[in-house]
Design a protein around this nucleic acid. Structure first.
Length: 645
RNA sequence: GCCGGCGUAGCUCAGGGGUAGAGCAACUGAUUCGUAAUCAGUAGGUCCACAGUUCGAUUCUGUGCGCCGGCACCA
């Protein structure tokens, strides 16, 4: 007879097999009301699951983080029932819970539009209000396939068909409606609650494969209560204000126009930001043993044929041809083959390794139109690229060294936390398993040396080697790969790079492809969103504005601005005949970090009144002191004393 | 590339089969003011492009282009 161990260590004996519902009731009416599901020996299951033997049970209530996932998953079922009730003939497919919500993919001739949402939401509330019990039923595989086929649910039938034969097929009923589902679920549709909202419609390929039919996906968000939902919606609104496209316009940083899709027109302030980041990166690379090079933009197709890119990526390359010439040149989509050309000049010795060759390489790729996104995903971009030619033994130490450098740089830009994904061998790959074993082991070892944790991203490596991806998140919660490090034993072979070893014989170097920012464009986009345009002083494109209160202070204001400029500050003057209130407002909205206000008082005493963005306080300093202090504050992190790279 | 939505002044947006409107910005003038909007005036538009329907299209229909949200892709 089952003895149930509870989280507090206590044990309850029962005379006969029980369900979670029974156990909760035995403990108390409060828990019986609150329990939504349970963890049975660590596995999440329905409350109604029978317990015949000794087991440990942890109840999940609305307060537990696990509840969110249950609510969202159940909400997806409720959505599916609502849709099938309102739009007969719609087939159901899958509907998981996701971060912040859920979605459900439907097969239907006429896709949904947001105008359908009110009706669907109303129907969902009705279903939740009915509080139909979720009833689990296990069913024979063939019977299940026949059942769904009879109902015209061919996607469900196919799902079952493709499940491994050992899998138990379970259905979940809620009143008259049912769905194929592994579970678990809460007690009834009432447990979903009312804190949900349909968010958007989207197309999505069946099983994520572009060769398959496109389904109509409805996204929703669901929370434990209205307060959480409101907070989430509010947070979304806030995030939209940080959108780099919006801020880029407001701060006059850049624009993109139809005649150059996927390419950026950098305006003076945006380019200033770009140059600040570039100058910083160049100093970091110089200090870390990199040699900077510059390679051609247009390169004959023969080189791309040798490297393999012509075969693999021709569709995504910009090809040019000059009139009256048969030659085809490609705008380089990447820098590696060019760097190998430099490596191949003359005879290389093992003594030169590891050789770190860096380039702020301008690349062009014909990205699919749907992939373009502001300045984060473009067709013309500049990588902070470098290739490290090294021996196999040097892979791990070089990688560790790289991670250290990257961490430092990310921290300087205000990203102390980032995610690392480890992508190992994909199905379609070149090179022997032995080679891959070595390359992956080196990367793992490097991560251990660097002391960093990573998530495994199975099968997502490049075709030539495993890679690490360094991922940052934008304002809206989308993840972007920025940094990367790829181990490549292949390209040196194809393009015949070699060096003379200690033994006097010729060897193939290994090649590490690596980038820290990834591309300037993407990184600047993330950076803009990270700071919502309110950059730290060293990054701000306009660091200070000297604003006058009266015209009598104009000459002094010019003097102050000149002194700021001599100290290397990016400064502007505002001598317009507006009230100081208006000037404060205008430059605050423009995210200028320092406002130096001068009136008659300041002109007479040779002081300035500094006001920092986000603060209402004023600090009156002598001109000399203000210059010294701001100049020191505006020093890039790598140039601060005591922090020399 | 695929599915859906959108495209009106520099920006944010309203409007609607009879060739367009607001706020902010810009420009001009007045105002010289002490830390988040001084007042008045002026100017500003191929209503994304092309085709079709119509007496007449910015408005309706179609196609193209671009943008936005997803999906797929991301060397």
């Amino acid at each position: 007879m089952p003895a149930i161990t509870l989280p507090d260590g206590s044990v309850r004996q029962f005379d006969a097999p029980v369900t979670g519902t029974d156990v909760a009731a035995a403990i108390g009416p409060g828990l019986a009301r609150a329990a939504l599901a349970m963890k049975l020996d660590g596995k999440e299951v329905d409350l109604s699951t029978p317990i015949g033997q000794d087991a440990s049970v942890v109840f999940i209530t609305r307060r537990d983080p696990e509840a969110l996932e249950l609510i969202r998953h159940d909400a997806a079922h409720v959505l599916a029932e609502a849709v099938q009730a309102l739009y007969p003939g719609t087939q159901v497919t899958i509907g998981p819970s996701i971060e912040n919500g859920f979605y459900y993919d439907f097969a239907r001739n006429d896709p949904f539009t947001p105008e359908d949402f009110p009706a669907i939401e109303a129907k969902m509330r009705e279903i939740v209000g009915r509080g139909e019990k979720f009833v689990r039923e296990e069913i024979d595989r063939d019977a299940a396939i026949a059942f769904f086929q009879d109902r015209g649910e061919k996607y469900k039938a196919q799902l079952i068909q493709d499940l491994p034969g050992t899998e138990t097929i379970s259905l979940y009923k809620q009143g008259d409606w049912l769905d194929l589902c592994r579970g678990p679920h809460m007690r009834s549709t009432a447990d979903v609650g009312t804190a949900f909202k349909l968010m958007k419609v989207a197309g999505a390929y069946w099983r994520g494969d572009h060769r398959n039919a496109m389904l109509s996906r409805i996204y929703g968000t669901a929370w434990r209560d209205q307060k959480e939902l409101d907070a989430y919606l509010h947070q979304l609104e806030e995030a939209e204000r940080r959108d780099h496209r919006k801020i880029g316009k407001e701060m006059d940083l850049f624009h993109i126009q139809e005649e150059a899709v996927g390419s950026i027109f950098w305006h003076p302030k945006g380019w200033k930001l770009y140059r600040t980041v570039e100058a910083y990166m160049r100093r970091r690379l110089d200090a870390n043993g990199y040699q900077e090079v510059k390679t051609p933009q247009l390169v004959d197709r023969s080189l791309w044929e040798k490297s393999g890119h012509w075969d693999n990526y021709r569709q995504n390359m910009f090809i040019t041809q000059v009139q009256d010439e048969d030659k085809f040149l490609a705008l380089k989509p990447m820098n590696c083959p060019c760097h190998i050309q430099i490596f191949r000049q003359g005879m290389r010795s093992y003594r030169e390794l590891p050789l770190r060759m860096a380039e702020f390489g301008s690349c062009h790729r014909y990205e699919p139109s749907g992939a373009l996104h502001g300045i984060m995903r473009v067709r013309a971009f500049t990588q902070d690229d470098a290739h490290i030619f090294c021996t196999e033994e040097q892979i791990a130490p070089e990688t560790a060294r790289f991670i250290t450098l990257l961490s430092q740089i990310y921290a300087d830009f205000g990203f102390p936390d980032f995610r690392i994904k480890f992508s190992d061998r994909p199905e379609a790959r070149i090179g022997s398993d032995d080679l891959w074993d070595h390359a992956e082991a080196s990367l793992r070892e490097a991560c251990a040396i660097a002391g960093v944790a990573y998530e495994l991203n199975p099968g997502e490596g490049a075709f030539y080697g495993p890679k690490l991806e360094f991922v940052l998140r934008d304002a809206i919660g989308r993840d972007w790969q920025c940094g990367t490090l790829q181990v490549d034993p292949n390209l040196p072979e194809r393009l015949d790079a070699e060096y003379v070893g200690e033994d006097g014989a010729r060897h193939r170097p290994m090649m590490l492809h690596r980038a820290i920012l990834g591309s300037f464009e993407r990184f600047l986009g993330i950076l803009i969103e990270q700071y919502a345009g309110r950059f730290p002083l060293w990054l701000a494109p306009v660091q200070a504005v000297v604003a006058t209160i009266v015209a009598d202070a104009d000459d002094y204001a010019r003097e102050v601005a000149a002194a700021f400029a001599r100290a290397g500050l990016a400064v502007e003057t505002d001598l317009s005949n507006q009230k100081i209130n208006a000037k404060v407002r205008e430059h605050s909205l423009a995210h200028v970090p320092v406002l130096a206000v001068v009136g008659r008082k300041e002109a007479e005493s040779r002081t300035v009144a500094l006001r920092r963005l986000g603060s209402q306080a004023q600090e009156v300093l002598s001109l000399d002191e203000a210059v010294a202090r701001l100049a020191s504050e505006a020093t890039p992190p790598d140039l601060k004393s005591g922090n020399v790279a």
